[in-house]
């Protein structure tokens, strides 16, 4: 039913705006057919520009090429690339009903009326919008609007689906629900999807692979697991999740730092700083075997767990998570163990 998924390749795609601002440094990127690739990064990192280059809404600087299944489409505008696009602001046509919005691309393609109706009905059912078919779009909630936008983009059976921060304008609970729906939808359709977001939880949940971007460059490409557990740089480590950083020096039997000694396996390059995630820290039951000693500076009860800030004498306090049932008060002495396989040296 759906067209064969599309493989997309960017070759040396840079983008400089008319005022001389370099939005994107020369970028090479391979997007596999049928995968969901998430472009993740802070605002101004070039992720949206990359998406717009793929869409055909922007042209790369001279020398850059965009290839769809090996075919050079750099010179083609978006109307000739046959990709579906979903925007943060929904971009629904206000002068059309829900059904007319969904059927717009089909009318442009002059499909037979009967097929248009069938296709719109199919999309309404898929997105659970049947009851809203004749509504004006300004009568819909944010979540409903974004489902209409998805249905409209998918109705024309695009070769790839491009989503530009589609959930950012929604409230947290709705965002979670719709994220799950989009995930199921993309997996079900097997369509190549490129998803732009600045929300790392969204990226982790949706991406087959994630491209972390910063300052117009790719910082790392990898699976969510790779990005989280094996960050390629301090930027990626800091940007994804929470990361503790401890300064010190590597010794023959570990890593000496303020507050104690970490059981770092030998790296052979004389580490001066190590990083680890809060979930790799345990509160030590036994003072004798503890790696670090410190003082609780603040404690936040989060419902499912308690987040602690612990001062071990280094520049920044450590972030540690403990069971929600334990209570801590500021000033309390605490001993910690850090799992050796959670220690990262970058």
């Amino acid at each position: 039913m759906n067209p064969v998924p599309l493989a997309i390749r960017l070759e040396g795609c840079a983008r400089t705006f008319a005022d001389g601002t370099r939005a994107l440094e020369p970028l090479d990127l391979d997007i596999r057919a049928g995968e969901t690739l998430v472009l993740l990064g802070p605002s101004g990192c070039g992720k949206t520009t990359t998406l717009r280059l793929i869409a055909g809404l922007e042209r790369p600087d001279a020398g850059g090429r965009v290839l769809f299944d090996g075919e050079d489409v750099t010179a083609r505008g978006i109307e000739a690339r046959h990709v579906g696009m979903v925007f943060q602001s929904y971009a629904l046509f206000p002068n059309m009903t829900v059904a007319e919005n969904i059927g717009y691309g089909l009318r442009i393609r002059k499909l037979p009326i009967r097929e248009q109706r069938a296709r719109v009905g199919e999309m309404l059912a898929m997105m659970r919008l049947e009851a809203l078919a004749d509504r004006a779009v300004d009568q819909l909630s944010g979540g409903q609007r974004q489902r209409v936008a998805l249905a409209r983009a998918l109705a024309v059976r695009p070769r790839a689906l491009l989503l530009d921060e589609p959930l950012t304008a929604l409230d947290a609970q709705l965002r979670d629900t719709l994220r799950m729906e989009i995930n199921l939808l993309l997996r079900g359709l097997g369509i190549t999807a490129i998803y732009v977001t600045h929300d790392q939880a969204e990226a982790m949940a949706l991406g087959d692979r994630i491209v972390v971007m910063a300052h117009g460059r790719v910082a790392q490409v990898g699976t969510p697991r790779d990005i989280y557990h094996r960050p390629a740089s301090a930027f990626v480590a800091d940007f994804i999740g929470t990361m503790n950083r401890v300064r010190g020096s590597e010794t023959a039997d570990g890593f000496a730092c303020a507050g104690g000694r970490l059981r770092l396996p030998p790296t052979g390059r004389g580490a001066a700083a190590v990083m680890f995630r809060p979930e790799d820290v345990r509160i030590a039951a036994d003072d004798e075997t503890a790696d670090l000693a410190g003082t609780v500076t603040a404690s936040f009860y989060l419902g499912d767990r308690t987040r602690l800030f612990v001062d071990i004498g280094d520049e920044c306090p450590l972030t540690v998570e403990s069971s929600a049932r334990c209570t801590f008060r500021p000033g309390q002495a605490i001993r910690l163990n850090v799992q050796p396989d959670g220690l990262l040296v970058l």
């Binding site: 505008g77 978006i78 579906g84 925007f87 717009y104 691309g105």
Partner: peptide, 9 residues
């Protein structure tokens, strides 16, 4: 842009 992405001239 949405209209163009759907093929509109």
């Amino acid at each position: 842009e949405a209209a163009r992405s759907l093929g509109a001239s």
